[in-house]
Structure formats: C-alpha cells, structure tokens
C-alpha cells in the first residue's frame, strides 16, 4: 500500500463578490473527502463561503521556461495603456 493518496488543490471564496483564490493543497481519495478535508484544514475561522477542490493532475500549468514567449510580447505594446496617448493638459474628464 505505497500508492500516494491523490493531491487536490483548494480554492476558497472568502465572501460573495470576491473570486475563489487558491489557498493550498491536500491529499484525499475522492472529491467528497477532499471537500471535507478542505473545510477542516482551510476554513476553521470563517475564511470562506464557498470551496472548490480540483485534483492537481487536472491542472495544466504554463512552464516558467516558456515565460518569455508567453509574456514578453505584451511588454513592448505600450499603446495598450492609456498613458501612451499624448493629449493636451486642458482636456478634462478623460
């Protein structure tokens, strides 16, 4: 019996109006057990109103080595920011 119990990622919505945020991980055999454990481990002090659990193996993550090709193209596109445009100072409400 040396098979690892599966790993799950836990996401908590701290209150309605806010997004779920990743808060940690835990091991559980199935979704129900992951949910119960998440409640005990991550919401002992009213930290949440909603929990998502996702088995870690189902998450596809970008690799840090690919950061360049993924994110660098955005850095030279300054025209996507409002400060790129030169307008007269007297102009109001813009």
């Amino acid at each position: 019996m040396s098979q690892e119990i599966p790993l799950w990622e836990v996401f908590i919505r701290s209150k309605n109006g806010l997004e779920h945020r990743h808060c940690g991980s835990l091991h559980a055999e199935d979704a129900e057990m992951a949910m119960n454990n998440a409640r005990d481990v991550y919401t002992r002090r009213n930290e949440g109103v909603s929990i998502w659990v996702v088995e870690s193996k189902n998450i596809t993550a970008s690799s840090p080595e690919a950061s360049g090709e993924l994110f660098e193209p955005a850095t030279d596109k300054v025209y996507r920011h409002p400060t790129f445009y030169e307008l007269p100072e007297e102009l109001k409400h813009m």
């Binding site: 040396s2 690892e4 002992r44």
Partner: peptide, 26 residues
C-alpha cells in the same frame, strides 16, 4: 482542542508546501 487541531492544520500547510519541492508525503 482547538489549539491542537490548529497544529495539525499547520503541519498540513507545511507538508503541502514541502511537497511542491518534489518530495512525497509518504
């Protein structure tokens, strides 16, 4: 009881953090 339960929780947060470095819980 609540304090001891917290300590179990703290152990779990830390084991999880440690596992991200590529070592298993077992």
């Amino acid at each position: 009881l609540a304090k001891v339960q917290d300590e179990a929780g703290h152990g779990l947060y830390l084991y999880s953090a440690c596992e991200t470095l590529g070592i298993t819980r077992e």
